[in-house]
């Protein structure tokens, strides 16, 4: 893949930025705690982070590390094209649990809002003030390499623009994210 300026991977509680291990925790650390500790490590003050579902937290943290060197102008018209496999299934299941039991039926609006996989793009766009093209694609887990290339090919470049493309997934307590910052 060409024009890649920065790349980040987070999986197995290891954060790898530009090929270098930046942060890690023991495998036994619960995912939620791993995300919180990474958030604290980054010294962020963004209380909205704690309201996000796991998929959004994952994308938010990866984007934070990938985009922190860009100026507001560079980010304004950026494109964000992401793919995932299991959509918002984590939040879907939690929301379903609020409506499955007749005697304890209280559908939660703050869960429902995360039952769309593209909310993670909204969270990144809000945080970094990104107004450009955006799309969330779904793909089988065995196709993640190829979907990133497909997204890369799909970018219609205007001069001097950036794009965030990548893959993220959260399913049955397993997560992973591979994000790339691309420049025209």
């Amino acid at each position: 893949m060409h024009n890649v300026q920065r790349a980040i991977t987070i999986r197995n509680h290891q954060v790898i930025l530009q090929g270098e291990l930046l942060f890690q925790r023991d495998q036994s650390t619960p995912n939620a705690r791993f995300f919180s500790e990474l958030y604290k490590e980054l010294k962020l003050t963004y209380p909205k982070f704690f309201k996000m579902d796991p998929l959004a937290k994952l994308g938010f943290l990866a984007a934070e590390l990938l985009l922190n060197s860009l100026s507001a102008e560079e980010k304004e018209e950026m494109k964000i094209l992401l793919a995932c496999s299991h959509s918002s299934i984590e939040s879907d299941t939690m929301f379903q649990n609020t409506i499955s039991d007749e005697s304890n039926y209280y559908p939660s609006p703050s869960l429902f809002v995360y039952t769309l996989p593209n909310i993670v793009i909204g969270e990144i766009a809000i945080r970094h003030r990104i107004y450009g093209e955006n799309g969330l694609y779904l793909t089988p887990p065995n196709n993640k390499k190829s979907i990133i290339e497909t997204l890369h090919k799909q970018i219609k470049w205007e001069d001097n623009r950036y794009a965030l493309i990548g893959y993220l997934d959260y399913y049955k307590n397993k997560y992973e994210v591979d994000f790339y910052l691309i420049h025209s």
Binding site: Y106, P107, S108, P109, S110, V113
Partner: peptide, 11 residues
């Protein structure tokens, strides 16, 4: 969204 969640809490 918080306001809507408070409505759920009340109920």
């Amino acid at each position: 969204i918080d306001a809507l969640e408070l409505i759920v809490l009340m109920e």
